[in-house]
Design a protein around this nucleic acid. Sequence first.
DNA 1: TAATTGGGTACCATTTTAGTCCTGTATAAA
DNA 2: TTTATACAGGACTAAAATGGTACCCAATTA
Lengths: 154, 154
Amino acid sequence: MLKLSRLTDYAAVVMAQIARHPNKPHAAAELAEAVQLPHPTVSKTLKMLVKADLLVSQRGAQGGYQLARSASSITAADIITAMEGPVAVTTCSQAEGECELASTCGVSDNWQRVSMAIRTLLESVTLAHLAATTPIKLPVQLPIQSISVEAVSA
Amino acid sequence: MLKLSRLTDYAAVVMAQIARHPNKPHAAAELAEAVQLPHPTVSKTLKMLVKADLLVSQRGAQGGYQLARSASSITAADIITAMEGPVAVTTCSQAEGECELASTCGVSDNWQRVSMAIRTLLESVTLAHLAATTPIKLPVQLPIQSISVEAVSA
DNA sequence: TAATTGGGTACCATTTTAGTCCTGTATAAA
DNA sequence: TTTATACAGGACTAAAATGGTACCCAATTA
């Protein structure tokens, strides 16, 4: 599935909600109501987003959460990283040299490249895109430049 | 992390190993030895790949597993789908209309587009690419076409 | 017919994830 | 200054997914 965790999903929804009404702090309770999710869970999500510097918080009455910067400078990759850590398809594409099977593996280099391409893609999608009702237009993939595969199929 | 499951990772490694020595059946035990993973686990992985029609198997003495088709016509997306089901970033981007929060969500459409873009990317990476020692060259991402985000930041 | 090799299933241990709760602290308004 | 509001941090529990193993059956070939 290559799926995002549920909390990451919530984070995106909540961030989008805030992005649609900037310049005003949003209390956790208000956001929970708006997106129809349990308050404690939304609260936990918000705390993680603050820790990752995607939101800023204001305590006390009339306090709440606001975007730390503009919606167009926050990316999907930022949100995913905040909730789940660095975007990496395989464990070995996250931390180099920590896989003792590297010698017999033979695919790690290429998985790293795939990871990087996905990361680039996710960095090109901003919160502004996600929050917009207008569908985003993602780039059509260019075909992979052909490489020598003769050594493989021979 | 957006990580693949460990079994998917194994599947890629095993598939690559077979791809490097086609035209000859590979017994599970032999593959397990080659990639340095426990036999039962490799065996389980192989069975799943057969079920997904990526490998064909031959029982009996001198039997084993071979690619069901050429390495260049098997994609990373195929392998991931075989092990984890359809590539989808969110649950709602997999099956339409099964999320009761859709009305308050507001980002599902755009996640679906992101999912699709990742799927396209993974479909452009073949087993031949993964198995090759030559690094694959993934396309440079084109910048996203600008869309109206005024409605968001206003 | 015996040895080899995959097929299917069920099971268990572990890890990860999700969700909740509690106590503390900062802020603003009355 | 007091009080209500709202975030901060961490501990804890329940549930689910994952990974790994074992067992017995079926097919094939020498």
